[in-house]
Protein backbone atom coordinates (compact mmCIF):
# COMPACT_ATOMS: atom_id res chain seq x y z
CA UNK A 1 0.00 0.00 0.00
CA UNK A 2 2.05 2.93 -1.34
CA UNK A 3 5.01 1.64 0.64
CA UNK A 4 3.67 3.12 3.89
CA UNK A 5 4.84 0.34 6.09
CA UNK A 6 8.18 -0.47 4.48
CA UNK A 7 10.50 1.51 6.74
CA UNK A 8 10.21 3.36 10.06
CA UNK A 9 10.76 6.65 8.19
CA UNK A 10 7.47 6.21 6.33
CA UNK A 11 5.47 4.25 8.89
CA UNK A 12 6.04 6.42 11.95
CA UNK A 13 4.86 9.74 10.50
CA UNK A 14 1.60 8.07 9.42
CA UNK A 15 1.07 6.52 12.85
CA UNK A 16 1.74 9.82 14.57
CA UNK A 17 -0.49 11.73 12.18
CA UNK A 18 -3.25 9.24 13.07
CA UNK A 19 -2.59 9.61 16.80
CA UNK A 20 -2.57 13.38 16.56
CA UNK A 21 -5.72 13.35 14.45
CA UNK A 22 -7.43 11.09 16.97
CA UNK A 23 -6.56 13.36 19.88
CA UNK A 24 -7.74 16.46 17.99
CA UNK A 25 -11.02 14.67 17.26
CA UNK A 26 -11.45 13.57 20.88
CA UNK A 27 -10.62 17.12 21.98
CA UNK A 28 -13.14 18.70 19.60
CA UNK A 29 -15.90 16.40 20.84
CA UNK A 30 -15.08 16.54 24.55
CA UNK A 31 -13.99 20.13 25.02
CA UNK A 32 -16.50 20.99 22.27
CA UNK A 33 -19.39 20.14 24.54
CA UNK A 34 -18.01 21.93 27.55
CA UNK A 35 -17.01 25.04 25.58
CA UNK A 36 -20.49 24.87 24.05
CA UNK A 37 -22.10 24.84 27.50
CA UNK A 38 -20.05 27.96 28.27
CA UNK A 39 -21.31 29.68 25.12
CA UNK A 40 -24.92 28.88 26.11
CA UNK A 41 -24.55 30.21 29.68
CA UNK A 42 -26.00 33.72 29.12
CA UNK A 43 -29.27 32.22 27.87
CA UNK A 44 -29.99 30.49 31.19
CA UNK A 45 -31.30 31.62 34.58
CA UNK A 46 -28.89 31.91 37.53
CA UNK A 47 -29.89 28.58 39.14
CA UNK A 48 -29.72 26.84 35.77
CA UNK A 49 -26.19 28.15 35.29
CA UNK A 50 -25.09 26.27 38.42
CA UNK A 51 -26.52 23.07 37.05
CA UNK A 52 -25.03 23.58 33.59
CA UNK A 53 -21.59 24.10 35.06
CA UNK A 54 -22.09 21.18 37.46
CA UNK A 55 -22.75 18.95 34.43
CA UNK A 56 -19.22 19.60 33.09
CA UNK A 57 -17.37 20.22 36.38
CA UNK A 58 -15.86 16.76 36.82
CA UNK A 59 -14.80 16.52 33.15
CA UNK A 60 -13.53 19.82 31.75
CA UNK A 61 -10.03 19.42 33.05
CA UNK A 62 -9.48 15.99 31.50
CA UNK A 63 -11.17 17.20 28.31
CA UNK A 64 -8.65 20.01 27.88
CA UNK A 65 -5.80 17.58 28.42
CA UNK A 66 -6.55 16.19 24.94
CA UNK A 67 -5.61 19.59 23.54
CA UNK A 68 -2.30 19.41 25.37
CA UNK A 69 -1.79 15.90 23.97
CA UNK A 70 -2.65 17.02 20.42
CA UNK A 71 -0.35 20.03 20.57
CA UNK A 72 2.24 17.90 22.35
CA UNK A 73 2.14 15.32 19.54
CA UNK A 74 2.48 18.07 16.96
CA UNK A 75 5.41 19.40 18.97
CA UNK A 76 7.17 16.08 19.44
CA UNK A 77 6.38 14.31 16.19
CA UNK A 78 6.43 17.22 13.73
CA UNK A 79 8.62 19.87 15.38
CA UNK A 80 9.29 21.80 12.17
CA UNK A 81 5.56 22.12 11.43
CA UNK A 82 4.82 22.99 15.05
CA UNK A 83 6.99 26.10 14.94
CA UNK A 84 5.67 27.11 11.52
CA UNK A 85 1.99 26.73 12.41
CA UNK A 86 2.17 28.34 15.83
CA UNK A 87 4.25 31.36 14.85
CA UNK A 88 1.82 32.03 11.98
CA UNK A 89 -1.16 31.68 14.31
CA UNK A 90 0.51 33.70 17.07
CA UNK A 91 -2.36 36.08 17.80
CA UNK A 92 -5.34 33.68 17.53
CA UNK A 93 -3.43 31.21 19.73
CA UNK A 94 -2.99 33.98 22.30
CA UNK A 95 -6.72 34.78 22.17
CA UNK A 96 -7.55 31.10 22.65
CA UNK A 97 -5.17 30.82 25.61
CA UNK A 98 -6.66 33.88 27.29
CA UNK A 99 -10.10 32.37 26.69
CA UNK A 100 -9.09 29.03 28.20
CA UNK A 101 -7.57 30.83 31.19
CA UNK A 102 -10.66 32.96 31.82
CA UNK A 103 -13.06 30.02 31.66
CA UNK A 104 -10.82 27.55 33.46
CA UNK A 105 -10.36 29.73 36.51
CA UNK A 106 -14.05 30.69 36.54
CA UNK A 107 -14.97 27.05 37.40
CA UNK A 108 -13.06 27.32 40.64
CA UNK A 109 -13.58 30.95 41.56
CA UNK A 110 -17.36 31.06 40.96
CA UNK A 111 -17.94 28.21 43.39
CA UNK A 112 -15.85 29.82 46.11
CA UNK A 113 -16.93 33.44 46.06
CA UNK A 114 -19.17 34.55 48.89
CA UNK A 115 -21.31 37.09 47.02
CA UNK A 116 -23.84 36.82 44.18
CA UNK A 117 -22.12 39.72 42.45
CA UNK A 118 -18.80 37.90 42.49
CA UNK A 119 -20.47 34.81 41.11
CA UNK A 120 -22.06 36.79 38.26
CA UNK A 121 -18.68 38.26 37.38
CA UNK A 122 -17.11 34.81 37.18
CA UNK A 123 -20.10 33.57 35.14
CA UNK A 124 -19.31 36.43 32.77
CA UNK A 125 -15.67 35.40 32.67
CA UNK A 126 -16.75 31.81 31.99
CA UNK A 127 -18.90 32.89 29.04
CA UNK A 128 -16.40 35.33 27.52
CA UNK A 129 -13.59 32.81 27.92
CA UNK A 130 -15.59 30.00 26.30
CA UNK A 131 -16.57 32.30 23.45
CA UNK A 132 -13.00 33.51 22.88
CA UNK A 133 -11.68 29.94 22.86
CA UNK A 134 -14.39 28.68 20.46
CA UNK A 135 -14.13 31.60 18.04
CA UNK A 136 -10.34 31.54 17.93
CA UNK A 137 -10.26 27.77 17.37
CA UNK A 138 -12.71 28.18 14.48
CA UNK A 139 -10.65 31.05 13.11
CA UNK A 140 -7.46 28.99 13.24
CA UNK A 141 -9.24 26.07 11.57
CA UNK A 142 -10.32 28.40 8.76
CA UNK A 143 -6.85 29.84 8.25
CA UNK A 144 -5.38 26.35 8.34
CA UNK A 145 -7.82 25.15 5.68
CA UNK A 146 -6.72 28.14 3.59
CA UNK A 147 -3.09 27.06 3.82
CA UNK A 148 -2.15 29.55 6.59
CA UNK A 149 -2.18 32.48 4.17
CA UNK A 150 -3.56 35.80 5.35
CA UNK A 151 -5.41 37.67 2.63
CA UNK A 152 -8.78 39.42 2.84
CA UNK A 153 -10.39 36.35 1.29
CA UNK A 154 -8.85 33.85 3.74
CA UNK A 155 -9.58 36.05 6.75
CA UNK A 156 -13.23 36.35 5.69
CA UNK A 157 -13.38 32.57 5.35
CA UNK A 158 -11.73 32.13 8.73
CA UNK A 159 -14.31 34.41 10.32
CA UNK A 160 -17.04 32.25 8.81
CA UNK A 161 -15.46 29.10 10.23
CA UNK A 162 -15.06 30.85 13.60
CA UNK A 163 -18.83 31.38 13.75
CA UNK A 164 -19.56 27.87 12.45
CA UNK A 165 -17.32 26.08 14.95
CA UNK A 166 -18.74 28.15 17.80
CA UNK A 167 -22.23 27.19 16.59
CA UNK A 168 -21.20 23.55 16.38
CA UNK A 169 -19.81 23.66 19.92
CA UNK A 170 -22.99 25.30 21.19
CA UNK A 171 -24.95 22.55 19.45
CA UNK A 172 -23.02 19.64 20.95
CA UNK A 173 -23.17 21.52 24.27
CA UNK A 174 -26.97 21.67 23.98
CA UNK A 175 -27.21 17.93 23.24
CA UNK A 176 -24.96 17.27 26.26
CA UNK A 177 -27.27 19.36 28.47
CA UNK A 178 -30.30 17.58 27.03
CA UNK A 179 -28.73 14.36 28.25
CA UNK A 180 -27.49 15.62 31.62
CA UNK A 181 -30.33 17.86 32.83
CA UNK A 182 -34.07 17.73 33.42
CA UNK A 183 -37.17 19.89 33.69
CA UNK A 184 -37.12 23.43 32.33
CA UNK A 185 -33.42 23.42 31.55
CA UNK A 186 -33.84 20.26 29.50
CA UNK A 187 -36.65 21.87 27.51
CA UNK A 188 -34.43 24.86 26.88
CA UNK A 189 -31.65 22.54 25.73
CA UNK A 190 -33.98 21.00 23.17
CA UNK A 191 -34.78 24.47 21.85
CA UNK A 192 -31.11 25.47 21.75
CA UNK A 193 -30.25 22.23 19.97
CA UNK A 194 -32.91 22.79 17.33
CA UNK A 195 -31.61 26.29 16.64
CA UNK A 196 -28.06 24.98 16.64
CA UNK A 197 -28.96 22.28 14.13
CA UNK A 198 -30.13 24.93 11.67
CA UNK A 199 -26.78 26.63 12.20
CA UNK A 200 -24.94 23.34 11.68
CA UNK A 201 -26.72 22.77 8.35
CA UNK A 202 -25.84 26.27 7.14
CA UNK A 203 -22.27 25.93 8.41
CA UNK A 204 -21.63 22.51 6.88
CA UNK A 205 -23.08 23.71 3.58
CA UNK A 206 -21.09 26.95 3.67
CA UNK A 207 -17.78 25.33 4.47
CA UNK A 208 -18.28 22.39 2.10
CA UNK A 209 -19.08 24.85 -0.69
CA UNK A 210 -16.31 27.32 0.07
CA UNK A 211 -13.40 24.91 0.68
CA UNK A 212 -13.17 23.42 -2.85
CA UNK A 213 -13.78 26.84 -4.39
CA UNK A 214 -10.81 28.46 -2.66
CA UNK A 215 -8.43 25.51 -2.91
CA UNK A 216 -7.97 23.77 -6.25
CA UNK A 217 -6.10 20.93 -4.65
CA UNK A 218 -8.92 20.11 -2.28
CA UNK A 219 -11.47 20.51 -5.11
CA UNK A 220 -9.56 17.98 -7.20
CA UNK A 221 -9.30 15.60 -4.29
CA UNK A 222 -13.05 15.50 -3.86
CA UNK A 223 -14.53 15.98 -7.31
CA UNK A 224 -12.47 13.75 -9.56
CA UNK A 225 -13.45 10.17 -10.42
CA UNK A 226 -13.21 7.61 -8.96
CA UNK A 227 -12.57 9.39 -5.63
CA UNK A 228 -15.94 11.08 -5.82
CA UNK A 229 -17.73 7.75 -5.85
CA UNK A 230 -15.75 6.41 -2.89
CA UNK A 231 -16.32 9.57 -0.92
CA UNK A 232 -20.03 9.88 -1.66
CA UNK A 233 -21.07 7.91 1.45
CA UNK A 234 -19.49 10.58 3.69
CA UNK A 235 -21.82 13.48 2.76
CA UNK A 236 -24.77 11.09 2.41
CA UNK A 237 -24.22 9.67 5.90
CA UNK A 238 -23.87 13.19 7.30
CA UNK A 239 -27.19 14.20 5.78
CA UNK A 240 -28.80 11.07 7.18
CA UNK A 241 -27.45 11.93 10.64
CA UNK A 242 -28.76 15.46 10.44
CA UNK A 243 -32.24 14.16 9.56
CA UNK A 244 -32.05 11.66 12.42
CA UNK A 245 -31.01 14.47 14.79
CA UNK A 246 -33.94 16.60 13.73
CA UNK A 247 -36.42 13.74 14.20
CA UNK A 248 -34.99 12.84 17.62
CA UNK A 249 -35.06 16.46 18.80
CA UNK A 250 -38.76 16.70 17.91
CA UNK A 251 -39.56 13.74 20.15
CA UNK A 252 -37.46 14.66 23.17
CA UNK A 253 -37.65 14.71 26.10
CA UNK A 254 -39.59 11.44 26.38
CA UNK A 255 -41.63 10.42 29.40
CA UNK A 256 -39.03 8.32 31.23
CA UNK A 257 -36.06 10.14 29.75
CA UNK A 258 -34.62 6.94 28.36
CA UNK A 259 -33.54 8.32 24.99
CA UNK A 260 -32.04 11.66 26.00
CA UNK A 261 -28.54 10.45 25.04
CA UNK A 262 -29.46 9.93 21.36
CA UNK A 263 -28.76 13.46 20.01
CA UNK A 264 -25.40 13.66 21.79
CA UNK A 265 -24.35 10.27 20.42
CA UNK A 266 -25.48 11.20 16.89
CA UNK A 267 -23.57 14.48 17.13
CA UNK A 268 -20.39 12.65 18.11
CA UNK A 269 -20.72 10.53 14.97
CA UNK A 270 -21.42 13.62 12.88
CA UNK A 271 -18.29 15.38 14.22
CA UNK A 272 -16.26 12.24 13.47
CA UNK A 273 -17.48 12.17 9.86
CA UNK A 274 -16.70 15.87 9.43
CA UNK A 275 -13.27 15.25 10.82
CA UNK A 276 -12.58 12.40 8.38
CA UNK A 277 -13.59 14.64 5.49
CA UNK A 278 -11.18 17.26 6.74
CA UNK A 279 -8.34 14.78 7.27
CA UNK A 280 -8.84 13.37 3.78
CA UNK A 281 -8.57 16.87 2.29
CA UNK A 282 -5.20 17.51 3.88
CA UNK A 283 -3.37 14.22 3.78
CA UNK A 284 -0.35 14.01 3.40
CA UNK A 285 0.21 17.64 4.41
CA UNK A 286 0.68 18.80 7.99
CA UNK A 287 1.08 22.40 6.83
CA UNK A 288 -1.34 22.61 3.88
CA UNK A 289 0.44 22.63 0.51
CA UNK A 290 3.77 23.41 2.16
CA UNK A 291 5.06 20.60 4.34
CA UNK A 292 4.15 16.91 4.39
CA UNK A 293 4.11 14.77 7.50
CA UNK A 294 7.19 12.98 6.17
CA UNK A 295 9.18 16.19 5.81
CA UNK A 296 8.19 17.45 9.26
CA UNK A 297 8.67 14.24 11.27
CA UNK A 298 11.20 13.85 14.12
CA UNK A 299 13.96 11.27 14.13
CA UNK A 300 12.59 7.68 14.11
CA UNK A 301 14.44 6.66 17.29
CA UNK A 302 12.64 9.40 19.22
CA UNK A 303 9.26 8.55 17.71
CA UNK A 304 9.67 4.86 18.54
CA UNK A 305 10.26 5.58 22.21
CA UNK A 306 7.14 7.75 22.39
CA UNK A 307 5.11 5.17 20.50
CA UNK A 308 6.15 2.42 22.90
CA UNK A 309 4.97 4.53 25.82
CA UNK A 310 1.77 5.54 24.06
CA UNK A 311 0.85 1.90 23.30
CA UNK A 312 1.09 1.02 26.99
CA UNK A 313 -0.37 4.16 28.47
CA UNK A 314 -3.13 5.23 26.05
CA UNK A 315 -5.37 2.20 26.73
CA UNK A 316 -5.00 2.88 30.46
CA UNK A 317 -5.87 6.56 29.93
CA UNK A 318 -8.95 5.56 27.93
CA UNK A 319 -9.96 3.10 30.65
CA UNK A 320 -9.80 5.56 33.52
CA UNK A 321 -11.33 8.38 31.49
CA UNK A 322 -14.23 6.02 30.82
CA UNK A 323 -14.34 5.27 34.56
CA UNK A 324 -14.80 8.99 35.30
CA UNK A 325 -17.65 9.21 32.77
CA UNK A 326 -19.27 6.12 34.32
CA UNK A 327 -18.97 7.43 37.88
CA UNK A 328 -20.56 10.75 36.93
CA UNK A 329 -23.12 9.24 34.55
CA UNK A 330 -26.79 10.15 34.63
CA UNK A 331 -28.30 13.51 35.42
CA UNK A 332 -26.02 16.19 36.79
CA UNK A 333 -26.49 17.00 40.46
CA UNK A 334 -25.17 19.96 42.36
CA UNK A 335 -21.47 19.60 42.87
CA UNK A 336 -20.12 19.49 46.35
CA UNK A 337 -16.79 18.53 47.80
CA UNK A 338 -18.39 16.35 50.50
Amino acid sequence: MLGFFDTPETTLPVIFALLMGASILVYVILDGFDLGVGVLIPFAEDTEKDRMIASIGPFWDANETWLVLAIGLLLVAFPAAHGMILTTLYLPVAVMLFGLILRGVAFEFRGKTATMRGKRQWNGSFFIGSLMASLSQGYMLGLYVMGLETTTMTIAFAMLTALCLTGAYAFIGATWLLMKTEDVLQLKSVRWAKLGLVGIILGFAGISAATPLVSDRIFDKWFSLPEFAFLLPLPLLSMGLIVALWVSLRHLPDAVDRWCWIPFALTCVLFTLGFFGMAYSFYPYVVPDQMTIYEAASAPESLVIILAGACVVLPIIIAYSALAFIIFRGKATDLSYD
Binding site: G57, P58, F59, D61, A62, E64, T65, V68, L69, G72, L73, L75, V76, A77, P79, S298, S302, I305, I306, G309, A310, V313, L314, I317, Y320, S321, L323, A324, I327, F328, L335, S336, Y337, D338
Partner: peptide
Protein backbone atom coordinates in the same frame (compact mmCIF):
# COMPACT_ATOMS: atom_id res chain seq x y z
CA UNK B 1 9.78 15.71 22.65
CA UNK B 2 9.69 12.25 24.20
CA UNK B 3 10.20 13.70 27.69
CA UNK B 4 7.24 16.07 27.28
CA UNK B 5 5.19 13.28 25.71
CA UNK B 6 5.85 11.05 28.72
CA UNK B 7 4.79 13.86 31.02
CA UNK B 8 1.47 14.23 29.21
CA UNK B 9 0.85 10.48 28.98
CA UNK B 10 1.88 9.43 32.49
CA UNK B 11 0.93 12.51 34.48
CA UNK B 12 -1.51 14.99 32.95
CA UNK B 13 -4.29 12.53 32.14
CA UNK B 14 -3.88 10.74 35.46
CA UNK B 15 -4.21 13.95 37.46
CA UNK B 16 -7.07 15.36 35.39
CA UNK B 17 -9.21 12.22 35.31
CA UNK B 18 -8.90 11.35 39.00
CA UNK B 19 -9.19 14.95 40.15
CA UNK B 20 -12.91 14.88 39.27
CA UNK B 21 -13.37 11.74 41.40
CA UNK B 22 -11.27 13.15 44.21
CA UNK B 23 -13.18 16.45 44.31
CA UNK B 24 -16.74 15.44 43.63
CA UNK B 25 -16.81 11.68 44.07
CA UNK B 26 -16.82 11.34 47.88
Amino acid sequence: GPLLAYEILTAFFLEAAFLGIMLFGF
